[in-house]
């Protein structure tokens, strides 16, 4: 496929997306305020998918490993936080949890990545599968397997906005808005870190070419610890948000499965791709659930992301923003 076709496909996709999102309005079945609520709700859950996806992209870029354990890390972070908070105030517990995530990153590098250096990607992927089950079991062994409520003082009451403009206004969950702001802040900090610091530059360098990075004096092992620590931080933030929304429980790690179609959509190597992919999937599944659900029998939310990812794998396997691999024959 040449560059022009590829660009046209991207444009076609976005046109289709906009059309799809606007269709319920245009064909009259939807009331505007209600439609707006659905769109906002969709985008908000998209932000959360994006957060988990960012963790995946981070590690994939720096080490070429698809980290299956990202979901388990989210659960582990949330679990640690909730149990430490029983003894310590929130701020302190946050620091302790972060330290635990860094320790975890260090252990993964020491015990898994280092012995497996230069192995096939599939070997490393299988290793992270093992890591996922280990973290999952270890977390529950240490912290218990009950369902815990994580209360960090986020207001649960939804707010009604624009009451003057529409009859009844639109209902927006305050919790979601705060979560989105937190996620936005995290992304901004990460962008600053990657673009403006020497360490960030070193991380980008490692992502581009391992051998060259080593030759200019970047120690790969330390970079891997840093990357897994940052992924741990991202997991912690996702864990806090999801945990306080749904409660801290085993199913928390299943959100990583939603992050998979997000990175397929956005491209495995693109951070903006992860964000936009997350938003598209969040928006897409909510809008189609609400407006197509009645015709198709509902449950669209559960498969929408995967079908979209499947279509992308068929027509554009590198995703919207991923790097295309052109192999020389």
């Amino acid at each position: 496929m040449n560059a022009a076709t590829s660009r046209n496909l991207t444009i076609a996709f976005f046109v289709l997306l906009t059309f799809g999102a606007l269709a319920p309005m245009a064909f009259g079945s939807a009331r505007f305020p209600q439609w707006l609520e659905v769109v906002i709700g969709g985008l908000m859950s998209g932000v959360l998918y994006a957060l988990v996806a960012i963790g995946l992209v981070l590690i994939f870029k720096a080490s070429g490993v698809f980290n299956f354990a990202q979901g388990a890390m989210v659960l582990f972070a949330a679990l640690t936080l909730v149990r430490v908070m029983e003894k310590l105030p929130f701020a302190l517990a946050l620091v302790v949890t972060l330290a635990a995530m860094v320790a975890l990153a260090w252990l993964v590098e020491r015990l898994v990545l280092r012995p497996l250096v230069n192995q096939e990607p599939i070997v490393l992927f299988m290793a992270t599968l093992g890591v996922a089950y280990f973290i999952d079991g270890f977390g529950q062994l240490v912290w218990g397997s009950d369902i815990y409520t994580l209360d960090i003082g986020m207001p649960k009451e939804p707010k009604i906005l624009l009451e003057g403009t529409f009859e009844g206004g639109i209902l927006v969950s305050t919790e979601d808005v705060i979560a989105a702001v937190m996620a936005g802040l995290l992304v901004a900090v990460l962008a600053l870190f990657f673009q403006k610091t020497g360490t960030g530059r070193a991380l980008r360098a490692v992502a581009d070419d391992h051998q060259a990075a080593q030759s200019i004096g970047i120690p790969l092992n330390r970079i891997w610890v840093i990357v897994w620590s940052v992924a741990g931080l991202v997991a912690l933030v996702s864990g806090v948000i999801w945990g306080s929304k749904l409660g801290v429980q085993f199913s928390l790690q299943l959100i990583a499965l939603k992050a998979l179609p997000v990175v397929i959509l956005g491209g495995f190597t693109s951070m903006p791709g992860a964000i936009i992919g997350g938003l598209i999937i969040g928006l897409g599944e909510k809008v189609s659930e609400v407006y197509l659900g009645p015709y198709l029998g509902g449950g669209i939310e559960n498969w929408f992301a995967y079908v979209l990812a499947l279509i992308f794998l068929l027509f554009r396997p590198e995703g919207l923003f991923g790097e295309r691999h052109i192999d020389r024959v």
Binding site: D208, D209, Q211
Partner: peptide, 17 residues
């Protein structure tokens, strides 16, 4: 073995890590 996605300037700055 260059950092292909990065600018010339960034490649050189990376050299000074």
């Amino acid at each position: 073995a260059l950092f292909k996605g990065m600018s010339v300037l960034d490649n050189m700055l990376a050299g000074r890590t």
